[in-house]
């Protein structure tokens, strides 16, 4: 499955945030969307998953225009979204959170979903009866990703998974996303941690003030003097 964003513009109220953004995520590809705070990365993900209405431009899933489709409909078309800040249901157990991910998108594949998530994140299996609110930050992020995977998305949007995680845990989470992409899911990863993202991504875009200013392979971007100066502080 292929996700295309074409010339997308949107914002909140009168404040425009995105000014004609275009990008593409192919099947099995891990694409990083990088940029500083306030560049519009989260806004882009919200517009793709239907939580925010585009002012202009289009979001296409396998060539199909998603215009006017609700977030729930988009989710049913196998578009998954791991929101910023995890947003788990803290008073539910790990397993109940996962069950919620499957209940409306893939109710018949619940068992398969648990197996897949627990294989990817063995720590979650150990803590399956624990309340989600009592997990560590890293485990919560794993659970948020796992919950989205329970719906068997073919395109997965992940918003700042490394936020507040130790470098080692951040790496573990990003490597897990790489694993998900290898399984055939197109992953669009929004990150501020540029160095780490460039290590795992197949391709990357750099966003500044609502526009894509650079794109290419990780090798090319790591070599780009602007990226080196602004994001890698080399």
């Amino acid at each position: 499955m292929r996700l295309e964003v074409k010339d997308l513009a949107t914002g909140y109220g009168k404040a425009q945030v995105l000014f004609g953004v275009s990008l593409e995520v192919k099947e099995g590809e891990l694409v990083a969307l990088l940029g500083a705070n306030g560049a519009g990365k989260t806004t882009l993900l919200r517009a793709v998953s239907g939580l925010l209405r585009p002012w202009q431009g289009a979001v296409l899933l396998n060539g199909r225009d998603l215009k006017g489709l609700s977030p729930a409909r988009r989710a049913r078309l196998a578009l998954g979204h791991v929101p910023e800040g995890r947003q788990l249901f803290p008073l539910m157990t790990v397993e109940e959170n996962l069950r919620l991910g499957a209940a409306f998108l893939a109710p018949r594949r619940e068992k398969e979903g648990y197996e897949r998530v627990y294989a990817l994140f063995p720590r979650l299996a150990e803590r399956r009866r624990q309340l989600a609110g009592t997990l560590s930050g890293g485990e919560q992020q794993m659970l948020a990703i796992g919950r989205a995977l329970m719906g068997f998305p073919q395109i997965l949007l992940v918003d700042e998974p490394s936020l507040g995680l130790s470098p080692r845990l951040a790496e573990e989470v990003l490597l897990a996303l790489k694993e998900v992409a290898r399984g055939g899911v197109g992953v669009l990863l929004v990150e501020q941690n540029v160095a780490l993202s460039l290590e795992v991504a197949d391709r990357a875009y750099v966003m500044e003030q609502g526009r894509i200013v650079l794109e290419g392979s990780p090798q090319r971007l790591s070599a780009d003097p602007r990226v080196r100066e602004a994001y890698l502080s080399l």
Binding site: S49, S70, R76, P83
Partner: peptide, 9 residues
């Protein structure tokens, strides 16, 4: 918002 992206109408 989370409910929506998990497919809840």
């Amino acid at each position: 918002a989370v409910a929506r992206v998990l497919g809840v109408r």
